[in-house]
Design a protein around this nucleic acid. Structure first.
Lengths: 239, 239
DNA sequence: CAAATAGTGTCTTTAAGACACTATAGT
DNA sequence: ACTATAGTGTCTTAAAGACACTATTTG
């Protein structure tokens, strides 16, 4: 192939800084609370939309963040007091009109934590049932909807919801979590078969629930290899 | 919840332009050629890596692109002469070290076209078998690997590969395309059952292949609703 | 009619769902 | 002994795979 006689409308030097998009990271933080899927929201401190509750987010700090994953971890630490939640990139939302300050771009993530975490009350933070969060500012409602859709569809064939569980849990508790996520009842036998095949949790030898008025249940924990920061390929059905 | 006495390390005004990341779009353009999965590459015109073959990409033009999808469409038009290929966002790659010019961010897409398209030879463009493209500059090899992985895994449960087919095609040709993608043989009966259930292609009434030394084959086409620009949720298994 | 590929019938194997049954704690 | 939930056995149903068989063209 020879040199092109006419150059395609190819990039010349990097665009002037003024034309560079605004780059942020936004996070859909999910948990199960009161038997419902809830999203973590923070209250904005300044314009635009000062005072409004939004998805936790922030600028990418090119001086301190190695990459966008890093920025997401930092933001969750600062805004929700979380140390190592399960975190995975969702997708990037961009455009001229999604933010009044100009052409902007948000690398969106979703994160999952067990219920009853995030109780630092010096934070402007609260949980909201996902149905009550339909009217978030910017395009945050769309980001939330996309994340919930992604999490629900992964729930159908993967072990993603184990990241909503506490350190130790029973199979019945895990099944309840799946049922709250999917908003449908699951068959106990099929559920247990599926989870066992996925091979992501393990029995804790000799550890059982006590004190309930019925037969004690085996306690389980996540297998250690279940990473907290996932690449998008890690929970696919096996080929 | 009351106002926080100590502000979290929250964003102050937007970072100065100099600290904004460099934002590009890169595209993994795929086709089947010579019975193998191949990627479309363009030759870089300037530093860094001038002369090297890379994934087609370019700056986001905040003045003319409505959003990142728009930028991807423009880049494919300019660099590969394509008008409406199937296009879907893959994920965003970012970091301090992926480009020598500084903290950069690439919104990666994958695109799929029928073979024997893109034959404008005033373009610095060529096809390369994906195995021969392991040593692309920047992190383009990783982006390519991620895209191929995504496409292969979607092939297992979706109709994605119909976008690699020409206007009209036979079921045997479609099966061959799946087999080239997955690098495995598929059972004819199961394949036809699956495709029929997906409901994405339709018989062309009375149109058959001719001239081959054997029984003619029914010709098919994509059903019109099969969008060329997909959101990530559109090809999921049904709930 | 021989060769080659298109397309179908149907049996086998595997996975998913339904659902009853047994197990074991607390009261 | 009764209740409530944990956990298992097993039959039924649906999906996937294997593979032989029929169909229809060209030469």
């Amino acid at each position: 192939m020879t040199r092109s006689p006419v150059l395609p409308s190819a990039p010349l030097p990097p665009p002037g800084d003024a034309e560079r998009p605004i780059v942020t990271v936004d996070i859909v933080l999910l948990t199960i609370l009161d038997g419902r899927l809830q999203a973590g929201l923070t209250q904005r401190e300044r314009e635009p939309a000062a005072g409004a509750w939004t998805l936790p987010g922030g600028w990418v700090h090119t001086d301190e963040d190695q990459d966008a994953d890093d920025a997401a971890v930092r933001i969750l630490r600062d805004k929700a007091g979380l140390e190592s939640p399960y975190l995975e990139q969702l997708r990037t939302f961009s455009g001229k009109h999604r933010d009044s300050r100009g052409w902007s771009l948000s690398i969106a993530y979703y994160a999952m934590v067990p219920g009853h975490i995030c109780e630092r009350d010096n934070l402007r933070f609260r949980w909201a049932p996902i149905d009550a969060a339909r009217s978030l500012p910017f395009d945050h409602a769309e980001i939330l909807r996309t994340a919930v859709e992604r999490v629900r569809s992964k729930t159908l064939y993967s072990s993603l919801p184990v990241h909503l569980m506490p350190e130790t849990f029973t199979l019945s508790q895990l099944q309840l979590t799946y049922e709250h996520l999917l908003e449908m009842a699951l068959d106990k036998r099929s559920f247990r078969r599926r989870i066992e095949e996925l091979n992501v949790i393990e029995e804790i030898d000799g550890a059982f629930t006590t004190g309930a008025g019925h037969r004690p249940a085996q306690l389980y924990r996540r297998r250690p290899h279940a990473a907290r920061l996932a690449t998008s390929s890690s929970n696919l059905p096996v080929a």
